[in-house]
Amino acid sequence: MKNRNTEIIDLIEEHRRLIYKVANSYCSDIHEQEDLIQEIIFQIIKGYEKFDHKVKVTTWMYKIAFNVSISHYRKTKIREKYMIPMPEKLVRIDDPEEDETDENLKRLRRFIEELDPLNKAILIMYLDGNSHLEISAAMGISLSNVSTKINRIKQQLKKKFKQ
């Protein structure tokens, strides 16, 4: 019988894409992303002892990942008010792969970036194929509220792609 530590580590490895996606959506700086992913993993491992399996393990992991990411995002927003950012041109190393990225993907990423943290979480879970019930459980809002928001986001997304 696997011990609990090995169990959770295997789960994290299996669902690592979930963690990357959430971290990447709330934090664009690559160094801060490393910190954020570390924090998410720490909270997942810490929280696994109390996980009662009443929801899917991915729904539970989304909850933790969003909670950590949104808290991190809010902290960095305050910090940014007092920091002078480095001019991008001095530090940015052009990634040749970015030139090849599909225009639609860029638009989708920009759209996600512009969303507020709570709607962002809903869209990410929706795009990952989670049901409305799972989104409702992770976010702590009603099913009808989830449907309303998803429809609203889809309409905004349609407008964005028509521009």
Partner: peptide, 21 residues
């Protein structure tokens, strides 16, 4: 499009197993 994003992220990220353990 979202799946493309996922593949790109997978390609550019590495999960440090040592860190995990």
């Amino acid at each position: 499009i979202w799946k493309q994003n996922e593949m790109l992220l997978e390609h550019t990220r590495k999960l440090n197993v040592t860190l995990l353990r």
